[in-house]
Design a protein around this nucleic acid. Structure first.
Lengths: 190, 190
DNA sequence: GTCTATACCTGGATAGAC
DNA sequence: GTCTATCCAGGTATAGAC
């Protein structure tokens, strides 16, 4: 356990609460009052840590980047075979099917929302895609796809996004499972 | 040209303007004032035709359904080969790459937004997916895929959505083109 | 069928006591 | 570092004159 001062813990609590709310209701769909209620803190106190709602979003993206980096590191440690590593990526999707079906992909839906009118923020959120793209590209490079590692990574990311969108639209975990199986055999063929 | 009374034309103008705004800024991201400004009408007048903003959205979905039905009918008339018809579907994506890169898929992004917090409205918006799913399934049935026509249709829809999301996130029409080519050869293999 | 004025609420944000 | 009170802009929606 890391040692957090009182203020650091409060700040982390706000970000954690905001992360969940932004995912479940969208960024614009989450009001400051909702963050206030869900955190059990008071308006003024939250503004003590963040000057604007946008700043909270930046902190949420930082947190997600940090969490995903940890996950990727764990996969790298747990598996040595590049195909095993890629399979860990698709397994994550299957493991999160309930949330995906209910709220869509946390990364994709955030980027889709911000991409409409807030390109500045979307650019920031895109880093989440970059993180996975780069990690996946490394895996394809390990498999010998020196030249088209990045196209393959983006293809796989796209497949994952498409599955998440359709599964969300139809609220259907079976559909997600079925499509995931196809992606797995696609990986086996690379 | 169909004959529209003055009131019918005003109503159609509102829906057309709202369709564009909802696509470019999202449903929640579009304010009533924006519709007022873009239409050149006045608040009260718009409320004369629609009691709520939700009602406008319903009308927009109706319009989109109508427009897409026309497009699908045209493809059915223009092509007889099922593969040709499927290729018309993917050609539409390539033809709209500029808008897709700027605002995402009009159907997908709407469903993603509404799916977060407004399931009632999302259910309505889902009809747009159903329209394409059913049409695509018919085409796969024509190709002899009697049993798995619908899974194939949903797979293709998912591929299209994934491509739209990634192309939007990275604002990259080349990426879209590259992925579309893969979907084309996937169709050739069915 | 068109337009003006306005009600009412919730949004994000601030000032300042404790 | 915490909390209360409040501001102001903007949101949707309504009433009613023309």
């Amino acid at each position: 356990m890391s040692i957090l001062s009182k203020g650091e813990k409060t700040r982390a609590d706000i970000v954690e609460v905001a992360k969940e709310l932004f995912y479940e209701h969208g960024y614009d769909g989450t009001s400051f009052s909702q963050i206030v209620e869900a955190s059990g803190l008071h308006r003024g106190n939250i503004y003590h840590y963040f000057k604007t709602k946008d700043e909270i979003l930046h902190a949420v993206i930082d947190l997600r980047l940090q969490e995903f980096r940890q996950v990727l590191d764990q996969w790298n440690m747990r598996y040595t075979d590049p195909r095993e590593r890629l399979r860990a990526f698709v397994a994550m999707i299957a493991d999160n099917k309930t949330e995906l079906v209910n709220y869509g992909c946390p990364i994709g839906s955030l980027n889709t929302e911000l991409g409409k009118d807030r390109r500045d923020l979307q650019k920031r959120a895109r880093e989440l895609f970059d993180l996975f793209r780069d990690w996946l590209a490394e895996r394809f490079a390990e498999l010998g796809h020196k030249k088209d590692a990045e196209p393959l990574a983006l293809h796989l990311l796209g497949r994952a996004q498409g599955i998440a969108v359709i599964a969300h639209v139809y609220h259907d975990p079976k559909l997600l499972q079925r499509e995931i199986r196809q992606v797995e055999s696609w990986i086996d063929d690379r």
